[in-house]
C-alpha cells in the first residue's frame, strides 16, 4: 500500500489531536491560574484544596488519572448514585487538563512570588485593593515570566494527548495503530506519525512564542 494513502486517516487523527491539545491546554491554563493563586491564598480551605490538587495530580501518573476518570469514576458514581460516566473526549480532556494544570499551578505560584516585593508595596501605597493589585500589578508582571515554561508544558500536553488513544479516542496515535493493524507497515506509519507530532510541536512552540512576545511586549519597548 502506498504511504500517501495513510495521510487521509492520519489527518483526521491529527485534527482530533489538535482539538484535544487546544481544549486541554486552555482548560489546563485556567486550572493553573485558579489553583496556583489558590495555593497563595490566605484562606486555609482554598489553600489546602489547591495544595491537595497540585500534589495529587503531580504525584500520580497521567495514565493512572486518565484510567481512573474513565474506568473508576463511573463505579464511584454508581456507589453514590450519580452518573459519572463520561464520553472518551470529556474524560481525555479532563485528565489532560487536570494533569497539566497541576504542573502549571506551580509555575503560576512561582512567577507570582517572584514579582518583587517593592511592586506590592508601591501598589499598596497607591491604595489598590488586594484584588486590583493582583490583576493590574502582579499578574501582568508575572505572566511573561510564566510563558517559557508554559510553552514547554503545552508541547508536553500535545505529546500526552497520544495517551487518550488508549481509551479508544480516534486521535493520531489511534489512527496510526489502526493503520498498522491493517497494513503491518509499521516503519512507514510510525515514522510518518513521529514527524507529524514533531511538526505539530513546532507549531505549538511557535504559537506560544508569539503569545510570550505579546504578553511581554512592554519589556521589548524601545529595545
Amino acid at each position: 500500500m502506498e504511504w500517501t494513502s495513510y495521510l487521509a486517516p492520519l489527518a483526521q487523527g491529527a485534527w482530533v489531536t489538535a482539538q484535544l491539545t487546544v481544549y486541554s491546554t486552555i482548560l489546563g491554563g485556567l486550572f493553573a491560574f485558579a489553583f496556583g493563586l489558590g495555593k497563595l491564598s490566605h484562606n486555609p480551605l482554598l489553600k489546602g484544596f489547591s495544595v491537595a490538587y497540585i500534589e495529587i495530580f503531580r504525584g500520580t501518573s497521567l495514565l493512572v488519572q486518565l484510567f481512573w476518570i474513565y474506568f473508576a469514576l463511573p463505579i464511584l458514581g454508581q456507589a453514590i448514585g450519580l452518573d459519572l460516566r463520561f464520553p472518551p473526549v470529556a474524560a481525555g480532556v479532563a485528565a489532560l487538563a487536570l494533569n497539566i494544570g497541576a504542573y502549571g499551578a506551580e509555575v503560576v505560584r512561582g512567577a507570582v512570588q517572584a514579582v518583587p516585593r517593592e511592586q506590592y508595596e508601591a501598589a499598596t501605597a497607591l491604595n489598590f485593593t488586594g484584588r486590583k493589585r493582583l490583576w493590574r500589578i502582579t499578574l501582568p508582571q508575572a505572566i511573561p515570566e510564566m510563558m517559557p515554561t508554559f510553552g514547554n508544558l503545552a508541547v508536553q500536553n500535545l505529546k500526552d494527548t497520544a495517551l487518550v488513544s488508549l481509551i479508544s479516542l480516534g486521535d493520531m496515535a489511534f489512527r496510526a495503530e489502526q493503520i498498522r493493524n491493517f497494513t503491518q507497515d509499521s516503519v512507514t506509519v510510525y515514522t510518518l506519525v513521529l514527524f507529524m507530532y514533531f511538526g505539530m510541536a513546532l507549531v505549538v512552540t511557535a504559537c506560544m512564542k508569539l503569545l510570550e512576545r505579546y504578553v511581554g511586549r512592554w519589556r521589548a519597548a524601545g529595545r
Binding site: K159, S165, A173, E177, S186, L194, Y197, F198
Partner: peptide
Amino acid sequence: EFIRDTPLLIQLFFLFYVLPE
C-alpha cells in the same frame, strides 16, 4: 529536539514494531 517533541507512546510503538523488522 525531535525526541523531546514526540510522544513516548509513539516512540515505544516504533521500537516495539520496527526493531524486529
